[in-house]
């Protein structure tokens, strides 16, 4: 067996990465993360200016938000796979981390749908609530000191 570490009771093999290759990879990932963040910020500011306009296109805003979500997942992938070196581990190890995380697919979908359904139900059956949260009386008072913790 090559290159065993004497002082660790467990036998593991070191990944051998030469310095130049490593530096190139880290540099590339850093630039990628920065560029993705800048794109996200640009989209964030676009959404901001769209909200300032008279009638923001709801679909376009939603589409932009979707793009930002996907870009965030890309960032997460690069951080986990390169910075945390999960991409260099054995496949079985990767799977014991990734497969349980699949639970998030259900987790996110179920709970967001639940929240949405609750809103629809309340709007249907509680007209007072609907009026309070959708209709603005006159103009909103700047920084209203309001007490109602519950809605």
């Amino acid at each position: 067996m090559e290159h065993q570490q004497v002082l660790i009771p467990e036998v593991t093999f070191q990944h051998h990465t030469d310095d130049a290759d490593f530096k190139r990879r880290v540099k590339k990932t850093t630039i990628l993360l920065s560029v993705i963040t800048l794109i996200e910020l640009a989209i964030g500011l676009t959404i901001y200016t769209m909200h300032k306009g008279e009638h923001p296109n709801a679909f376009l805003v939603l589409a932009f938000k979707g793009v930002v979500c996907i870009l965030t997942l890309a960032k997460a992938y690069y951080i986990v796979s390169v910075f945390m070196h999960l991409g260099d581990e054995i496949r079985n190890m990767i799977m014991t981390i990734i497969v349980p995380l699949m639970l998030f697919v259900w987790f996110i979908a179920a709970f967001l749908i639940d929240g949405n359904s609750y809103r629809n139900l309340r709007n249907d059956y509680d007209p007072h609530y609907k009026q309070q949260t959708t209709e603005t009386k006159a103009k909103p008072v700047e920084e209203p000191e309001h007490k109602s913790g519950k809605e």
């Binding site: 987790f107 996110i108 709970f111 967001l112 639940d114 929240g115 949405n116 609750y118 809103r119 309340r122 709007n123 609907k130 949260t133 959708t134 809605e151």
Partner: peptide, 11 residues
């Protein structure tokens, strides 16, 4: 996700 749920349930 709980934040998302509450946000989705708000008008």
């Amino acid at each position: 996700i709980s934040y998302g749920t509450v946000r989705f349930s708000s008008n």
